[in-house]
């Protein structure tokens, strides 16, 4: 995907999420069991539900709700986040619960059950001038998807 200035946006770690060419929302890469339909965050080979070997790639829902959260008040070394900042877990609409950094939400505004959606945040420029991006969650703009 081309960002402002003509540079490419590349994921912090390849295979973590997809950046659709059509401008649609970024989605986390997950896996889905073709037998029982169980859906997982990240790359699994074996289904935890039915033990099927060989799961399919599955682009996870970009929207969900805050499952739980806290506000980190002490600055951890090496983080781009500036304390105090909220973090949490998001229950995606298709099932899995994932660790979440929140952006553009004031710490005191985060609530369990708050609708959120995935977004991308710039981390740095790589050697080729591309913008390295990571995923985070922000307050959902539309009421429902």
């Amino acid at each position: 995907m081309v960002a402002a200035g003509g540079t490419q946006r590349v994921p912090l770690r390849e295979g973590t999420f997809t950046i659709p060419e059509d401008g649609g929302p970024p989605r986390l890469c997950g896996t889905r069991c073709p037998s029982c339909g169980a859906t997982y965050a990240g790359q699994r080979v074996i289904c935890l539900g039915c033990a099927r070997r060989g799961l399919e790639p599955h682009a996870l829902s970009p929207s969900g709700t805050v499952w739980t959260f806290t506000i980190v008040r002490q600055q951890p070394p090496g983080s781009i986040m500036k304390a105090p900042y909220p973090i949490g877990q998001v229950a995606l609409d298709d099932g899995p619960i994932v660790a979440a950094a929140f952006i553009d939400i004031a710490p005191e505004d985060v609530r369990i059950g708050m609708p959120v959606e995935m977004t991308l945040v710039p981390i740095r420029k790589d050697d080729n001038g591309n913008e390295v991006v990571a995923h985070a969650f922000r307050r959902r703009k539309e009421a429902a998807r």
């Binding site: 912090l12 770690r13 973590t16 806290t70 980190v72 002490q74 951890p76 090496g78 983080s79 781009i80 986040m81 304390a83 900042y85 973090i87 660790a99 950094a101 981390i123 990571a134 985070a136």
Partner: peptide
């Protein structure tokens, strides 16, 4: 990712 985004915080 986790340390960059400040998710690796033990009490959290």
């Amino acid at each position: 990712y986790a340390s960059l985004m400040g998710l690796n915080v033990m009490p959290a």
